[in-house]
Design a protein around this nucleic acid. Structure first.
Lengths: 341, 341
DNA sequence: TTTTAGCACTCTCACCTTGAGAGTGCTAAT
DNA sequence: ATTAGCACTCTCAAGGTGAGAGTGCTAAAA
């Protein structure tokens, strides 16, 4: 749709703007990128690109700046024509930093997000495996004071989740042991989703096992097994916030608010987890006005079609997409491998 | 040391500046606060206050602004002459919002920090009870994959802590059960500090109980029982950051960095927990340059001389100290009561 | 001795003007 | 299709100006 030279010029403008967030002028392009034509020609082509919506001018007689649409065209070409592997050094650092904490999921994903951030200078986000697609290992139920018990859930992936649940004060520790033993013996090895759906079907017929506890068992099991999303770890907000792209306070405030808003983050992550592979959401392509000046490069990870979680980078629309995409792709593959054992 | 009228004028300037962060002029004081003297007199007294280091001028011929020392004088008088109770409405809101989550420590302290912040519009900080002064209830040890086990620690206060520990792969679940049974039976009800010191003394003599496990038991127990500080919950950073006091980005960045720095926060909290009662740290009185424009109103909570944790408000030095002090005092008393059962 | 009126002085801030610099669009020539 | 040339536009930093706010000092009044 765009002829080769026009494309090249678009990419040159984007390249320049990514490295240095100042409007790019025709003379600059002529000098820095060797197209073998004069600035006047470049000028005409840039005018064409503006007409097509790929570039825009902040004001008459400033240089040009890529639009969301411009970035989109660029990113699509990266995604279609393939992108390079992540820098060897970065890849090695990444792997070595994670070697020793494989078994502590909290530490592991905190580190993944920190590494994503540090390696890219954007904000790194890593979602721990979603509990409901994880594999049930066992639960422990422990009587606490008065009406509450503590439930601790373990999964094969290494997730450990505890929560406090209100129960009938007449439940004894023995009762609780029966509840947990039943689950631990009969359901270990299934995904938590499967446990849930099977459990509530079977309980009716297994009445004998739990007899008088049955009614209350329903409630307790339900609470223990209901988890919404995997824990989300973020790192590097400050790096993004202090970029020149967000130089004024109102913008900083806006973005900070959106990022801290669990609701918004969950919605974004949820929409990402609907699709496989690396995804790029540029500027206003996402539904939240507050993040209209940000781009998100994200991917799910997980084995054999079972999406376990999401990792992402958030930066300004003026992002080094090529590097970000390679990085997200690499990290997502690592996680997938790691959690397929 | 200051005569009554001079004091009143100092307080008037502080009062005005707290409500509106603009240098306070003599004419303004004359008009808004009725001292029955002319602006010239006020002017002279303000000049005296400046000489004494309680006020300062941003530049010749601007009004005056309180110095850290001015605030200190003001705060000391509040602390000495007593301060009012927290606003009835706020107190009721506070108590009612916490009623239903008493049993879930995480949720509880997250809510405490959120309430502190929302009620004051400053940053609220709440530290959950320190594990080492909490009362040991029980542990569970669970074999995980390969060389790691999960340890879950429960305290009477409602703390639940889990961690993953590397152990000799030859340890069976039965071995682990013996380790946990021993602890659960012999040490329940003691503080974790006591458990630690007793345990390592006694283990030598109780050899029989753990026999061949002894060596490794040492290591495992040590890891399970070693916790540094209580979890710290913070809320409302944005409220503080968007105050006019920190209007430029470099200040925002500085403060953000300091607040997010676990190291700094721990050091501050640690120094607070050395003293009883409400403490106020004003501006440069704290050791961190980054927080030199902030004040901290803090208190420990806990029963009978055993300090369990710290709560605090962080705001600009231009803080409503009176309100902040009442609030921190109130909340600290609530927590103390709650955790004395 | 304390307080006050009056006034000269200082400093900031918002507003304006101005000129340099960067970049464009258009036109006519190549 | 490309280019040189030029008029035009817009921003931005620098310098100048005057209103406004507030002070310090002095001399007189209480």
């Amino acid at each position: 749709m765009l002829d080769e030279r026009t494309k090249k010029i678009l990419y040159a403008v984007i390249h320049s703007y990514i490295n240095n967030p100042e409007p790019v002028g025709s003379r600059y392009v002529t000098k820095k990128y060797d197209f073998g034509v004069s600035s006047a020609t470049i000028r005409n082509i840039m005018a064409d690109l503006e007409e097509l919506g790929f570039l825009t001018q902040p004001h008459t007689s400033a240089g040009r700046v890529p639009t969301d649409r411009g970035y989109r065209y660029f990113v699509d070409s990266i995604l279609k024509e393939g992108y390079g592997h992540l820098d060897e050094d970065l890849a090695t650092t990444f792997l070595s930093r994670l070697q020793n904490i494989r078994d502590d999921i909290d530490a592991y994903f905190a580190e993944v997000s920190a590494l994503l951030s540090r390696m890219s200078n954007y904000m790194g986000i890593a979602q721990a495996p979603k509990p409901d697609v994880s594999t049930f290992k066992r639960i422990e139920l422990i009587r606490y004071r008065g009406e509450s018990i503590a439930a601790v859930l373990f999964t094969n992936e290494g997730l450990i989740k505890h929560r406090v649940i209100q129960v009938d004060p007449l439940f004894t520790q023995k009762d609780l042991n029966r509840l947990s033993d039943y689950l631990n013996k009969e359901y270990a090895g299934l995904s938590i989703d499967e446990v849930k759906s099977l459990l509530f079907k079977r309980l009716r017929f297994d009445k004998v096992v739990l007899d008088r506890l049955l009614d209350k068992a329903f409630k307790i099991y339900e609470q223990i097994l209901s988890f919404s999303e995997g824990e989300i770890y973020m790192e590097g907000l400050l790096d993004v916030l202090t970029l020149p792209d967000f130089a004024d306070i109102s913008k900083i405030k806006q973005i900070y608010k959106a990022i801290k808003d669990k609701h918004i983050m969950l919605k974004i992550i949820d929409s990402i987890s609907k699709t496989d592979g690396v995804q790029v959401i540029i500027g206003r392509e996402n539904e939240f006005e507050e993040l209209s000046r940000c781009s998100i490069v994200a991917s799910t990870y997980g084995h054999s079609g079972k999406k376990m979680g999401v990792i992402a980078l958030i930066g300004p629309t003026r992002m080094d997409y090529s590097k970000a995409i390679s990085m997200v792709d690499f990290v997502s593959n690592c996680l997938t491998k790691t959690f397929s054992e």
